[in-house]
Design a binder for these strands. Structure first.
Lengths: 134, 134
DNA sequence: ATTACTGTATTATTTGAATAATACACTAAT
DNA sequence: ATTAGTGTATTATTCAAATAATACAGTAAT
């Protein structure tokens, strides 16, 4: 039978002093594992109790991370068994709607550039160099 | 004498139910106003009491937003008068050094775009539309 | 000095998010 | 039916951030 993931293998870890909530730290790490396909579709995650024990936190904290990821469509719950990685979901928003969610960060970037006397052209050129292709 | 900005003109508004702190909502809006140069350098912001009254919040909440923006270098406090939009800082750093200070925000933007399935080309196109000329 | 404006330091209070304790429901194998 | 494994609903607790109340300090005009 296929092995359920060990937390140690997945490298899941928390930094209690970081100020970032534990459940959110875990969500971020799992999202990266899924995005990089280290966790492929269909693979199982560590059980809440197992992971909670290794990280010395409450199982409900793990459950909260898993549940949030389930709502985001990243994971699927299998009754009595555990959580597995979902099929890839296609984005439900159209391009315009998605791109608008970047407005705050873009405004911040534009402001910082202005304060540094970096022109629009210089900024766009740098962005072109800096952003990875896809 | 030059008119102090009216909140209604700046369109500053809050959504108490949004979950985002009031002071942060205001910071975001002001940053966008400055980045888009609707609020040009030297222009005055609404007084904390005036704005607090219009939004029916405590003046200290407005002050918190203003103070945070002052620490970011967006605003300057003028004793006994009010807050005005700061000059663009003109550092003696060369372009390469200045542009590197944008790396954190750029990384954030790139990550958000990727998570939203916005391609590099789509992002650059949107940025070109969104960032004011200079 | 007074009035009428600015912003804010300090303190208190409120609120909500994060975490934990407990008990429960499901599955699968024996 | 029992055991041992899943996740979670509910409730309580903890804790820090957000907001507010109050009193204070500056400016400018009169």
């Amino acid at each position: 039978m296929p092995e359920r993931s060990q937390a140690s293998l997945l490298g899941l870890h928390i930094s209690p002093s970081s100020g970032i909530p534990i459940y959110r730290q875990l969500m971020d790490q799992i999202i990266r594992l899924v995005a990089s396909e280290i966790l492929p579709v269909g693979s199982e995650l560590p059980s809440v109790r197992n992971l909670a024990k290794q990280l010395t936190v409450n199982p409900m904290t793990i459950s909260k991370a898993y549940s949030a990821l389930e709502m985001q469509g990243v994971l699927t719950r299998v009754r009595g068994k555990g959580m597995i990685i979902s099929e890839n979901t296609s984005p439900q928003l159209d391009l315009t709607q998605r791109v608008e969610q970047l407005d705050n960060t873009i405004a911040k970037l534009a402001l910082e550039a202005r304060q540094l006397n970096v022109s629009k052209a210089q900024l766009l050129e740098y962005l072109d160099k800096k952003i990875p292709k896809n």
